[in-house]
Design a protein around this nucleic acid. Structure first.
Lengths: 201, 201
DNA sequence: AGTTGGAGATGACAGATGTCATCGGTCGGT
DNA sequence: ACCGACCGATGACATCTGTCATCTCCAACT
């Protein structure tokens, strides 16, 4: 019997995924979470063999939780489940000792299959995603450039981004200019879109 | 036995929802779709009592499909399932003769329950969503203003938006300026974000 | 010890963006 | 026949953005 922990923020999807896994004879869902910051505690209590984590969770995101979980309970194999396929995210996931990476837009059987294979010690990663990740490569942005882009996302003008990050507004413009050039965009909006799709933010 | 059609683009989620509904004694999933433009044909073939439609589907979106379906097969009651809760979308849904509106972030039982109630002729709408919709009100944007905002979304500069819509670039700036003022934003990026969240695009 | 690269800043400049007043045309309502 | 609302356009203006050259400071390599 494979003991499974599952973390996914949308209740209905989570319920549905649990229903899906419960149909399998050799699996048992031992914990259901809707936030990232409860994962480690729940895992220590329920000792799952496999943890299925969504990436964007309230509290802390799935990848951060994955890193912590690997430290505190190395016996639990981690399988990440993600909606959008952002290549950059895959690299971060691998650094967090994630063993499997499945996109929600895959056939339903893939999940149970992935759980079994990860439990058996295999790595499970969508080949298309590997290709995309290699193509996209690692993020060209420095930490600050990424910070500024993230702040720009909410539509704030340059000077407000500056005060939020305690920077000079001229510096903010420089970072934005660098970021725009690096990702090959024409303006900040474009840059945000590109960086988001690549998973660099 | 309630005959259910289900349309949702992410395979795994769709599979999971089907698994969820199949657990109910009084329901039967008679059709599974992953695109909006196949909904009507599939419905005419399988004659479902209730159609569960996701909003953003490839082909045509769920609401457009809902309108068509209501015309071609009025006996099918429509239940819309959506991820983000964008108040503006609810209004469009009601105009498309949708009988129920459920967000994915609701307990799993809500779905089966919603299907049953819609089948019985009731309307099923999340109370929080109704409140949000009333607060947000109807879109303040004219058709063209919305067009321009949508075109601006991909990060194109003003003159390229203009040529794409066959407008003068000065006109584009006027529409953008109007839109920015109407939604209470400070620049185009801000306006896009606000309009998206409200479901006005 | 020297070099490289990131963080942070300044000043100058061109071009993009947002605002405003104003115009003409069309269409639906009263 | 008239009014109002939307579409489309122009010109002028102020401000915001994006680019570039240049500078300091600091940490990490070699």
């Amino acid at each position: 019997m494979i003991r499974v922990l599952i973390a996914e923020d949308m209740h209905m999807i989570r319920g549905a995924l649990v229903a899906l896994l419960s149909l399998e004879e050799d699996m048992e869902v031992v914990a259901e979470l809707d936030r990232g910051d409860e994962i480690v505690a729940a895992a220590l209590r329920t000792r799952p063999d496999v943890a299925v984590l969504d990436i964007d969770l309230p509290g802390v995101d799935g990848l951060t939780a994955a890193g912590e979980l690997h430290e505190k309970l190395p016996s639990a194999r981690i399988l990440v489940l993600t909606g959008l396929s952002q290549p950059g995210v895959l690299l971060r996931a691998l650094q967090a000792h994630v063993r499997g990476f499945i996109v929600k837009d895959a056939p339903a059987e893939t999940l149970a299959d992935g759980v079994r294979r990860v439990h058996a010690g295999e790595r499970v990663i969508d080949p298309d995603l590997i290709a995309a990740a290699l193509e996209t490569g690692t993020s060209p942005l420095t930490a600050r450039e990424a910070d500024v882009l993230r702040a720009a996302e909410s539509g704030l003008p340059t000077d407000q981004i500056a005060s939020r990050l305690s920077l000079s507004s001229a510096t903010v413009r420089n970072y934005l200019s660098n970021a725009i050039t690096k990702v090959g965009a024409h303006n900040r909006l474009d840059a945000i879109r590109i960086a988001r799709n690549a998973g660099w933010l």
